[in-house]
């Protein structure tokens, strides 16, 4: 009842909306991030057996983890290590060792599975790194190739005016359209020689369409380029 001044938060509704939007966005990013991180698991199945198939008996379960090829193969090739336990099972009618043997088996299986998964995961990460590095290298090689082509095409179109000082340097900001044509070429810094400025500007226009990558991601990087044009190497 007292007329207490209460600070009323301004733009409450907008704030709330923004907060919700941000939360939604975060959640979306999280989901997308995880999904992106995850990819289809390698196709192999894990079978849990109570009884083991009578197959290659091996003493050391560790072998499977070390030999990668064998690990990826279907579990049917897995050696029947627990065979002994199985025999024990049949022989002994003691309830205690029986459930423990089974438990042991299962535990071992789970461990092996885990180790295998870990190993596979490691491989997958390594593979992804390799691919990423390759893509990066290919990208910068591709970028370099197109920069070289642009450089050479513009140079080819430069008609050199006489007696340009070797230290002259014209600097342009050029905006390109997706088809390589020049939207505009702005002289940001004159070379000090008006004839050279004009000749180089003409060369940029004459070189249309400039060679740019077709890949949309790379093409974007050629939307705006800075050109430094000189009569000769310093």
């Amino acid at each position: 009842m007292s007329a207490t001044l209460r600070y009323r938060e301004p733009y409450r509704f907008s704030a709330g909306m923004l907060a919700m939007v941000v939360h939604v966005a975060f959640f979306a990013m999280l989901v997308m991030g995880v999904r992106w991180q995850t990819h289809q698991p390698d196709r192999f199945s894990v079978e849990l057996w109570d009884s083991l198939p009578v197959q290659q008996p091996t003493e050391e379960p560790v072998q499977e983890v070390v030999a990668p090829k064998q690990a990826v193969e279907p579990a049917s090739n897995r050696p029947a290590a627990p065979q002994k336990a199985d025999i024990e099972l049949r022989d002994k009618k003691v309830s205690k060792p029986q459930p423990s043997a089974k438990e042991l088996r299962q535990k071992k299986l789970r461990e092996e599975q885990r180790m295998m998964e870990a190993y596979v995961e490691k491989q997958r990460l390594a593979e992804r790194e390799r691919v990423r590095a390759e893509v990066l290298a290919a990208t910068s090689a591709e970028m370099g190739r197109y920069q070289d082509m642009i450089r050479s095409k513009i140079r080819h179109n430069i008609v050199m005016p006489p007696d340009v000082q070797p230290q002259a340097s014209a600097f342009f900001k050029v905006t390109l359209l997706p088809d390589g044509s020049v939207l505009d070429a702005v002289l940001l810094k004159s070379s000090g020689n008006a004839a050279y400025d004009e000749a180089t500007e003409r060369a940029i226009y004459k070189a249309q369409p400039l060679p740019i990558p077709s890949d949309p991601v790379l093409k974007k990087r050629f939307r705006e380029i800075n050109l430094t044009i000189r009569p000769e190497d310093r």
Partner: peptide, 18 residues
């Protein structure tokens, strides 16, 4: 964002303006 591409060009194709 990526840095803007900087391309350097030296030399000329020709010396006679058509």
């Amino acid at each position: 964002a990526h840095a803007v591409l900087n391309i350097e060009i030296t030399g000329a194709g020709e010396h006679q303006t058509p």
